[in-house]
Nucleic acid binder design. Structure first.
Length: 211
DNA sequence: CTGACGATTCACT
DNA sequence: GTGAATCGTCAGC
């Protein structure tokens, strides 16, 4: 098990990582990175094993499609490297990483992680009796386990509460698979785009098939 | 002001 | 496989 001290000594992803213009590339490269929360000095972390890219104003699946700009989605229009957290179905808090530059609203949804640090705290937050693969499977569960909620929307990922680090133990490229995104049937032909990335055969990846 | 609905999850058949 | 839970957001009136 990764120790907290070594985890916190790992380098954060930089603004230059987040601000690149290809959100699909960023989504792919976020696979294998480690998402960390440190709220009230309590640390939880997990390795990212499933992501989805939302490709700006031309993507019918994105909240920013057509340049739609509302109070909720305003943070998507910020410079890359911020958190976008919104409430879905009145229950689930979905965590996204804002990418690219100001006024270019791209984001990556973190859909699943593999727990690394703070599993006891994750069990507490999710009220689960013991750790199983559902602990951090699916975007709603990731946020519950890591303690992320809509109040964290706008948080700077270069600060120390909510951030992503790399341990250079990236997943083999052969194990990273692109698939269509989940739950975006409303997006017409854009629902078919291969903007979802998963680690092949990883048990924390959501959905029924692993392709 | 009102109504429809969702980048989901879970219990139940 | 099906359906309920649940509430902030957003478009429309």
């Amino acid at each position: 098990m990764l120790q907290i001290n070594s985890l916190l000594s790992l380098p954060k992803l930089s603004t230059s990582f987040y601000r690149r213009d290809n959100v699909v590339l960023v989504a792919r490269e976020l696979i294998g990175k480690i998402l960390v929360t440190r709220f009230n000095n309590q640390v939880t972390a997990g390795r990212i094993v499933e992501t989805e890219a939302y490709n700006g104003i031309v993507d019918k699946a994105s909240h920013a499609y057509g340049g739609r700009r509302t109070k909720r989605t305003e943070i998507m229009y910020a410079d890359g490297g911020k958190a976008y957290v919104y409430l879905c179905y009145g229950i689930h808090h979905l965590f996204n990483v804002v990418t690219h530059l100001k006024n270019s609203p791209h984001a990556v949804l973190i859909r699943a992680v593999e727990p690394l640090v703070g599993i006891e705290l994750m069990l507490q937050r999710t009220a689960k009796p013991k750790a199983d693969f559902s602990l951090t499977k699916g975007p709603g569960n990731v946020s519950r386990a890591l303690g992320i909620s809509t109040q964290h929307t706008g948080v700077d990922l270069l600060e120390d509460a909510l951030f992503i680090v790399t341990d250079n133990d990236d997943i083999s490229q052969k194990k990273i698979i692109a698939t269509p995104r989940i739950g975006v049937d409303y997006a017409g032909e854009d629902a078919l785009l291969p903007y979802r990335f998963i680690v092949k055969d990883n048990p924390y990846v959501s959905g029924k098939k692993h392709a």
